[in-house]
Design a protein around this nucleic acid. Sequence first.
DNA 1: ACCTGAACACCGTTCAAGT
DNA 2: ACCTGAACACCGTTCAAGT
Lengths: 236, 236
Amino acid sequence: MNNSNRTIISRRARPAKQPLSQDLIVQTALELLKSEGSPGLSMRKIAKALDTGPSSLYVYVANLQELSAFVLDNALAKVDFPEEDQGSWKSRLFDVLQSYLSVLYEAPGVAELSLTTIPAGPHSLAMMEYILRQLHEGGIRSTSAAWGVDLLLLYVSSVAFEQSSRDRKGTTLHAISASYRSLDPSQYPLISGLKEELLSSGGQEDKEGQQGYEGEARFRWGLEAILQGIVTRNNG
Amino acid sequence: MNNSNRTIISRRARPAKQPLSQDLIVQTALELLKSEGSPGLSMRKIAKALDTGPSSLYVYVANLQELSAFVLDNALAKVDFPEEDQGSWKSRLFDVLQSYLSVLYEAPGVAELSLTTIPAGPHSLAMMEYILRQLHEGGIRSTSAAWGVDLLLLYVSSVAFEQSSRDRKGTTLHAISASYRSLDPSQYPLISGLKEELLSSGGQEDKEGQQGYEGEARFRWGLEAILQGIVTRNNG
DNA sequence: ACCTGAACACCGTTCAAGT
DNA sequence: ACCTGAACACCGTTCAAGT
């Protein structure tokens, strides 16, 4: 620093520079991820936001990968678990997964994290346990249940990620839409004939609600399909 | 360069420095991706492999994202389509998806690409068309078919990615295994009870074949479950 | 038209040095 | 024990300049 012989003008807007801690780092990282997307999740940017150098973070966090895992689990704290004495197990199951989806939608980067980092934090475990409990109540046990949770969570993460990676760049949606429309129908008759259906990939087609009507319908369709399959495999 | 007054000793091992082209760039990129994983897919490394500077690549490719899309489609050229006059539509469907999975397994980075980049290249379109044709033959049409392909491809990509991101770091599997084993059974009774099933995530438990027996079984289970669901939704 | 060098604005991680 | 500065070895992309 070159302000050694200069009285400090103002100790920043920050509240007197809180001491660092893992929690503070993780929270700052999550804020950056939400405001700037996945490029916001960088050691250097987090350090800058905390008014320090990147090397300081390594006291509380092994590396970026570990930090990412913490950030994901922190975000998952917001997932809502419906009370277990109301409604059917199936409606509760759909509701958690819907809530999980909303949390992932909140920030484009979080969806990517959910696919990229292995979920072993307490919040993710709590969600798995809750889902397993609903499946159990629905008579789905053992292998079917274990593989089923994975499949369901994978589905939700993928939907969220696909969606958020489209939002990232308006170009991409235009690009794919254009490429479908310019297809040679004689070479790709089925794709050509299903253009519209293929493109309604769960996106927010309207500007209003959290998620378009089409998107919500498609999300539930996929969920029902997977669950249907799990149930059938379980009983068959 | 500082060898201006020095006769060139040897024009590298490369065959007399081929002129650049999009195809050469894409192929080199794919080779690097296979040999070094996703960090290998960098403009600078590709340029170095081609014995030029990174800026030279921008004549043939808009940016890294576009190049990635080309690389993915190039890799998908290897997907095998079973002859359509043999076996059932279902066995053909499973076989393409199995072949798709093998291609993604070939390189850890390719699996990641398949999740991250929107597939609009000719090889990916050909695969979609083929799958739609099998579904059509199985009586699955319209929305069910359109959303079904997406779901099936998503599943395969995710399985491949999950697997390859585990291979990347032996630590991660150990870490998750450890975290499951150290769980408080009273807090997470169902997860604790299903430890084994949850951990058999389609991985190669044996050192021999391309894929472990457990892994193959789990992969097919997921496929059957999804397909079952699609069929039921389609008819119901 | 194609290629190059140099620069710009970034990365993650380490490490000796300070308090 | 915690924090810092400086360095190392990387990124993608642009742009003026050369052929």
